[in-house]
């Protein structure tokens, strides 16, 4: 096993204590059709947004969606690192990281596959909103750290990143708002799923019908254009459509708080 010489040596193997406790898989919805945290399936989670959290960055934001906490900072536009990568359109460089203590199971320091995948989705969603042609020969860096993951981390990250880009005065066609929904059977759409409600293929029980998964949609609310979709699990196309519709509605609802967050921040500067 290659050792990491830049960090202190750690035990080769260690196990989360949760591994050794008896877990009881319960249904996502109880008999009163309420979710584990007491929400209705349609009920969204409370969201908190803040700009300018990181004073050293050009733009930054902090976003809290139920207990999911995401911090994001934006640097640039600055020179591209390698001069040979000369391009007339700017480059968007994103970095998506789960803090080691952010999940139930401890995460490693080196980016794993899930992080790379989510980073890719984040980059794509943001690339369609940022006016990259306005930044020739330069790159814009977006760093996202998930401090606590209680589900819907990607949605929170996209929203936070777009907010940070706006805070950094990077030109965008529109702000990007993202929302996710857990599809659980044909009928049940659980909005803003928590960590326990997220989709884990190995946890599926046979008796449910096969519609099972999580859909995340990134939307540009004023243009009403979808700029990113991530669907995990399997579901009928009609169900998927409905799920995307649900997410779109929810993301649309984020526009007002996003706008409020940005304008209130401007007010501070003027005064």
């Amino acid at each position: 096993m290659p050792t990491d010489s830049r960090r202190l040596p750690v035990p080769e193997v260690s196990h989360s204590p949760e591994l050794f406790c008896s877990s009881d898989p319960t249904s996502l919805i109880n008999d009163d059709s309420l979710r584990k945290d007491g929400r209705n399936p349609e009920e969204i989670a409370g969201i908190f947004m803040q700009c300018g959290t990181v004073s050293q960055a050009k733009g930054s934001s902090f976003c809290e969606l139920h207990k999911t906490k995401v911090i994001c900072s934006v640097y640039g536009p600055k020179d591209v690192e390698q001069k040979e990568d000369f391009q007339m359109i700017g480059k968007l460089k994103c970095d998506f990281k789960f803090a080691p203590f952010s999940c139930h199971k401890r995460r490693g320091h080196i980016a794993d596959l899930e992080e790379s995948e989510l980073c890719e989705v984040l980059t794509q969603a943001l690339s369609s909103s940022v006016c990259l042609h306005r930044y020739p020969k330069s790159q814009i860096e977006v760093y996202v750290i998930v401090l606590e993951n209680n589900g819907s981390a990607l949605a929170a990250a996209i929203t936070a990143a777009s907010l940070a880009l706006a805070d950094a005065c990077i030109e965008q066609y529109d702000i990007v708002a993202a929302a996710s929904v857990r599809v659980f059977g044909k009928e049940n759409f659980l909005r803003d799923p928590t960590f326990h409600e997220e989709y884990f293929p190995h946890q599926l029980s046979k008796k449910n019908d096969f519609n099972n998964g999580v859909v995340t949609v990134a939307l540009m609310p004023t243009l009403n254009q979808v700029c990113g979709v991530l669907s995990e699990g399997c579901m009928e196309s009609s169900v998927l459509q409905e799920a995307i519709q649900t997410c779109t509605e929810e993301a649309q609802n984020l526009y007002a708080p996003l706008r409020k967050c940005l304008t209130s921040n401007l007010g501070d500067i003027n005064v």
Partner: peptide, 16 residues
């Protein structure tokens, strides 16, 4: 303005 967060995760392992 400096901000540092510390999270501790406890796991079980075999001692050295």
């Amino acid at each position: 303005e400096t901000m540092v967060i510390c999270g501790v995760k406890a796991e079980l392992t075999i001692p050295s």
